[in-house]
Computed example of a mutant assay.
Amino acid sequence: MTKPEALSNMPAKNTIPGFYGRFVHGEQSTLAFWEITAGSVSPQHQHPHEQITYIAEGIFEMEMNGTKYMMQQHDVLVIPPNVPHGGRAVEDCKIIDSFSPPRDDYR
């Protein structure tokens, strides 16, 4: 992407039930903009990407490496590569995730 584009013009992908993401891919990273329906669950998983999560709106219960965190608006969390994590939207959420290296599975 070499010129500005409205996020709302990008198609949303339903990656798992209740998780709708719009993705921007650079050479070294992926930025994900999620809209998540209350009650939706991201099963425990891990990946080789470093992930930085920012809660823009709502409450999300994140479990990382066996510890649960109740994340609220403006909270951030760094998830190192290959660390098990997952979570549940307590309320409708808007979350921004940064991944490095890029998430080719989200292209």
Rank of each mutant, 00 (worst) to 15 (best):
R22I: 02
Y106D: 11
V78R: 15
S98N: 13
V83Y: 03
K13F: 05
E91W: 10
R107A: 14
Q44Y: 05
K94G: 04
F23P: 00
K13R: 14
E91V: 05
N65M: 03
G39C: 00
S29T: 08
I95W: 01
A89L: 01
Q44K: 12
T15I: 14
I96Y: 03
E61W: 05
F99P: 01
I36Q: 01
M64D: 07
I36D: 05
I95F: 00
H47P: 00
D92M: 08
E35K: 06
R22V: 00
D75Y: 14
G26N: 10
G21D: 02
S42H: 10
Q72R: 15
A32I: 08
I16L: 14
P48S: 03
L31Y: 05
A32N: 06
A56Q: 15
P84L: 13
G58H: 03
M70K: 15
D97G: 03
E27K: 13
G66A: 09
M64W: 02
N9Q: 15
N9F: 06
S42C: 12
P84Y: 05
Q73E: 15
A89R: 04
I79Q: 04
I95A: 02
S40M: 07
K68R: 15
F60N: 05
Q46Y: 13
Q28Y: 12
G87N: 04
R88S: 04
N9W: 09
M1Q: 14
G87Q: 04
V24S: 07
K3H: 13
G18V: 00
H85Y: 07
N65T: 02
V83E: 03
P43Y: 05
N14T: 13
E63A: 11
F19G: 00
K68Q: 14
D75P: 07
K68D: 06
I79K: 07
V90W: 01
D97F: 03
H47F: 02
P101L: 09
